[in-house]
Design a protein around this nucleic acid. Structure first.
Lengths: 345, 345
DNA sequence: ACTAACTGTGAGAGCGCTCTCACAAGTCAT
DNA sequence: ATGACTTGTGAGAGCGCTCTCACAGTTAGT
């Protein structure tokens, strides 16, 4: 039942293979009567075309790959990536594509995965999460001339097609919002400094302070690594500097930092206000609900797929880029909902 | 550079296609000298075999699919699935397999995905997460005679190969642990009742109570749906029944329930002790660290892949099953670490 | 030394599909 | 009625690989 071929159906109906193929692919020039008979035979037998044969003949597979390099080690501990994956999966469903997941866990994985993502015939295109600037996988993939879209701005954006969120603007908005609440000693907990996300968010933070005439105090800048624990540790150092507000570059770090603040016996937002980044579900699970920057993660994934389809179909010639907007979600941690909020100003 | 074929390499080296194929596949009967020359040509040109052609010729693709049905809607909000996916991805890496992800988001997705997961859709085998007993995808997949392993015991386990955790024993251990701490009014927050996981965990809970001669009080059993918010709501009802301990069938629900307890002004574990299930990272991020049942999620995924490989290679004839053990992780929420813990006894 | 076995290589028939061509039959304007 | 299209179908050459066979050359067994 599963080993049927086009030829079998053709024989059954009494037409040539070509005609069955036309019906299967919805091509024109098949008489309604014949089309009906073929369709019936296909339905009755439960025939499915062989994807490998089709891929070989058409030179494309309908499969795209999602590569998450080793440097994205936090892969599934940070809710960001699961959501991104989900968005991409939905994007694939929308366009009748199959998604293959390449999760690099170690150096050896890297060696095993590389041939599999270069192998012609299997993958029509690649979505690659950017991470460290010198990630081996990214370097090597460039050499395969396979259509690919980078998720997140790479360090050398020249000639690369990528999709990103407007991190500078988002961080600007977040910081600006804190300034508008009257805070002046605004600290920031950044991600690791070897990522463009971190640099961009830091830039937005600087811009907002500069725009308000607030001098940047390096003591108020602490480096984390996007994880909860790193936020906790960064905040422990930061507390001594007596900030009145903190912009954390991820919700996870904000949550960790808030934990440190609680343990120090300080109140949120009265003593220290908070704003995070991402708007993952965790943001609403904390005692004080987190004001944050919402990233359109699902839409981001869907858009990424569409961008990839575009370059698969039309070539990579002019490098394209998509920059998506974010949204400030005001909850309780920033003090905006407090009666008489601006007491810090 | 990417459009090379076996034939090209053969011509380059001055041998027949067959010989190059032998080298590529590490087959014997190639003289060391020729092998070396071929290898050099492959390296120099950057040749990679075409996967579609190979799949067509060998009748297998080296790709397995992971199907997460629509009923697993909580997909990426619950950290369980990301971790499981990660385990499976590593299992695939270990065995040089490619993983395709089929995330069913809607009824329409279902229709689109079904033809793609039929065997001739290029997959060697399928890992299918079980959910509702009447999930369309699972029903239909059975009709394709494609090797598959179910993740979690299905309702009709007859003839199905599956892998699961020993939920009955795990829930028994959890409940038993609470009993051992001296608690007697032990409530439970279950998952949705249309899943075997829920039924099994409930059975373990019953068994432990029965074994200790504690009568089951139906008022102490509340149904949730594995999510944080459902745990919160279930606990709100439960509080009126004055339990002295709660066994929640997932960490997420435990966290939600603990939130409800805090809001009611009660202390954990002094007033109400808690034990969860899963041991996801969240369990250690709560104010009171959660005692829980650790599932070997990563190992589970890896084992699942190995089981699938087994039935791909050796057939599904005798249905196989693997049941994995869990581990009780004692932290603060169960009161075992309290000085003078057994005050409830 | 003569058959038997092994080794290294070439030949070529598929795997199941797509797609261009060729062609018969029907449609239509002039 | 004649040439020019259009429509429906069949033919068959690939797509790039694997794998069984055949066979020449070498090694071994008695």
């Amino acid at each position: 039942m599963a080993e049927l071929t086009l030829e079998d159906i053709a024989k059954l109906v009494g037409v040539h293979r070509s005609t069955v193929s036309r019906v299967v692919n919805g091509a024109p020039n098949v008489s309604p009567e014949v089309r009906k008979r073929v369709l019936k035979a296909i339905h009755d037998t439960g025939y499915h075309p062989n994807a490998a044969a089709r891929s070989l003949a058409t030179q494309h597979s309908g499969i795209i790959g999602l590569v998450l390099p080793q440097s994205v080690g936090s892969f599934f501990s940070d809710p960001y990536f699961p959501l991104l994956t989900q968005g991409i999966a939905f994007g694939c469903n929308n366009h009748d594509l199959t998604l293959s997941l390449f999760l690099v866990g170690s150096k050896e994985d890297e060696e095993k995965i590389l041939p599999r993502i270069s192998r012609r015939g299997m993958l029509d295109g690649l979505l690659i999460q950017t991470g460290h600037p010198d990630d081996l996988i990214i370097q090597r993939v460039k050499k395969f001339s396979i259509p690919s879209v980078l998720l997140g701005r790479p360090f050398d954006s020249e000639g690369n097609t990528y999709i990103d969120v407007d991190n500078v603007q988002a961080a600007f908005n977040a910081t600006r919002h804190l300034i508008d609440q009257g805070y002046r000693r605004i600290a920031t907990i950044t991600g690791n400094h070897d990522s463009t996300v971190t640099l961009d968010r830091l830039e937005g933070y600087h811009k907002a302070l500069g725009g308000a005439g607030i001098p940047v105090d390096e003591a108020l800048v602490a480096e984390g690594s996007f994880t909860e624990i790193s936020g906790y540790q960064a905040m422990q150092k930061l507390i001594a500097t007596r900030p009145d507000a903190v912009f954390a570059a991820s919700d996870s770090m904000a949550v960790g930092a808030m934990r440190a603040v609680h343990e120090a016996g300080l109140r949120i937002p009265e003593d220290i206000a908070f704003i995070g980044f991402d708007d993952v579900p965790l943001a609403t699970l904390t005692k004080i609900k987190l004001t944050t920057i919402r990233q359109p993660i699902l839409k981001f994934g869907i858009k990424a797929v569409e961008l990839l389809i575009d370059i698969i179909e039309n070539g990579t010639k002019p490098a394209r880029r998509i920059i998506m907007d974010t949204e400030l979600v005001i909850r309780d941690s920033c003090g905006a909902n407090l009666i008489g909020a601006n007491q810090n100003g």
